[in-house]
Amino acid sequence: MSRIKGTFAALRAEGRAALIPFVEAFDPDRATSLALLTGMAEHGADIIEIGVPFTDPMADGPIIQAAGRRALNAGATLHGVLGIVRDFRKGNDKTPLVLMGYLNPILSYGVAEFTRDAALAGVDGLIVVDLPTEEADLLLPDAATHGLDFIRLIAPTTSDERLPKVLAGSSGFVYYVSITGITGTRTASAEDLARDIPRIRRATDLPIAVGFGVRTPEQAATVAKYADAAIVASALIEKLTLSDVAAVLGDVAALANGIRHAVKVAA
């Protein structure tokens, strides 16, 4: 069983949703990222999403854009990101890691080489923002060969008719982009989620994670009522720029606490 699958199975037994915090690799430097990853796993993160910096992050808002620029200035590369993963795995073999980024650095690395090296480094899943299902054959076969979960994005604009097509070949979990917009801007309401999550559930047995605009423990708890995981990114990056690693880990603990107290709505 993959780490991601195992994690969700254990959480289902526990009756709660997962917290998936986000770390932009190399923001502002390698050591900070490694400290965040290690610390988050100890402060209630169930899965961690690692942002791979790219010069042109078209789906990201100003906060993640700025994080990406700082990371690139600090010398971030895709090889370097895998290096961080390898170092993290020396002390943690349990917490699933998902890389989220854009296609071009992967193409430059070489799809076959990248999927092989990512799996060897201890990456569990991939989210490639600008690789829609129509182009997924570029990466999907290699990801499958190396046992990497291929996590697909679903948006409010994804119609019921389109859902099966988007979900084909996906594994691990489904990432629901809960708003039409870029990261870290608006927030989906409880009503939105109550309407949207069941629609996706009807199309898949995979766990559903909700991202884009989840900032506070209360919002994470709302997400946890309806979905299987809450992804928090921009709020944590912002905290890091204003404060330090300890403050971010404090927020992660608070978010984890919010999720643990959420009352699940029957699916």
Partner: peptide, 12 residues
């Protein structure tokens, strides 16, 4: 060529 956009835009 092709269509390398986020899912939100793909239906559009």
């Amino acid at each position: 060529g092709g269509r390398f956009v986020a899912e939100t835009l793909m239906p559009l």
